[in-house]
Amino acid sequence: MNMTQYSLTKYFSLTALVILIDQITKLIMEAKFQFGEFKPITVFFNLVLTYNPGAAFGFLAQHDGWQRWFFTTLSLLASVFIVIYMRKSRHLPRLCLGLAFILGGAIGNLIDRVRIGRVVDFLDFYVGNSHWPAFNIADSAIFIGVAILLVDEFSKKKP
């Protein structure tokens, strides 16, 4: 195995780890909680079982089901694009790291859409009565990946 193959292997291993942690936590939440049930953890954080048939922040969640296949297709296409882009960018470690997190998150939520037609969310942060929309490990991985890509882009030397 040459060094290039090893480099991508570690990024795809990270992707697999994100997917595994995401799916395990979602299955645990579904086994232990009923829809809408919550457990306070701190003064600003609950665990709560909720489902999102839409995208981020419930975007398009109120529609009659077509969005399941739209977001499934979009996730599949994005995942293929990310894999191709990672292969072409294997010499850029920070870029591949960010993309590995994003890929893991995209596939984690894709599995939910295929498995149950919606995404399992359970992390509920709030201040007083103001709640951030519930999210999950896959969403967190996507956020981390985007943050890494932004740091990578802004840290590049400008000519």
Score class of each variant (00 low, 15 high):
Q62F: 11
A141Y: 02
A100R: 03
V80G: 11
F71P: 08
T72Q: 13
T72P: 08
K10T: 00
I142C: 09
S155G: 08
I19R: 00
L150Y: 02
M86C: 10
N109Y: 12
A16I: 08
S155E: 09
I102A: 13
S79G: 15
L74G: 10
C96H: 02
E30I: 10
G128S: 09
N2D: 15
A134E: 08
F38H: 14
R87N: 14
I19T: 05
F71Y: 12
S7A: 11
H63K: 10
I148Q: 02
M3Q: 10
Y6M: 06
I107C: 09
L49P: 00
L47E: 03
R90Q: 14
L150C: 09
Q67K: 07
L95C: 00
I144N: 03
G145I: 04
G65W: 10
P40L: 03
M86L: 07
S130R: 13
L27F: 13
M1R: 10
Y51I: 04
K156M: 07
F12N: 06
L76M: 14
F122I: 01
M29E: 00
L47K: 00
L92A: 02
W66A: 12
P159D: 11
F38S: 15
N52R: 08
F57G: 09
L103H: 06
K10G: 00
L60H: 07
D124A: 05
A16N: 00
F12L: 15
S7G: 05
F122L: 07
D22V: 01
G98C: 05
G58W: 12
N2W: 07
V146E: 03
G105V: 03
G108W: 03
D112E: 12
H131L: 09
R113M: 11
L92H: 07
Q67P: 08
V83P: 03
F57A: 14
A100V: 06
I41W: 06
L17M: 11
S7E: 13
E37G: 01
Y126F: 15
L123C: 05
S89G: 12
S130Y: 14
R115G: 05
L110I: 13
G117A: 12
R113S: 13
L95K: 06
Q34I: 10
G145Y: 04
F38D: 09
A56E: 08
L27P: 02
D112C: 11
L27K: 14
M29Q: 02
G145A: 05
H91S: 14
A61T: 06
I102T: 07
V83E: 04
L27N: 15
D112S: 11
W132R: 04
T15A: 05
I144T: 13
R118I: 03
H91F: 14
L74S: 10
S13I: 04
K10R: 15
I148A: 02
S13R: 01
I41K: 05
F71A: 08
L103P: 11
I19A: 02
V80D: 06
F33A: 01
T4G: 04
D139Y: 00
P133D: 13
A147D: 03
L47G: 02
D139F: 06
L149M: 04
S130K: 12
F44R: 01
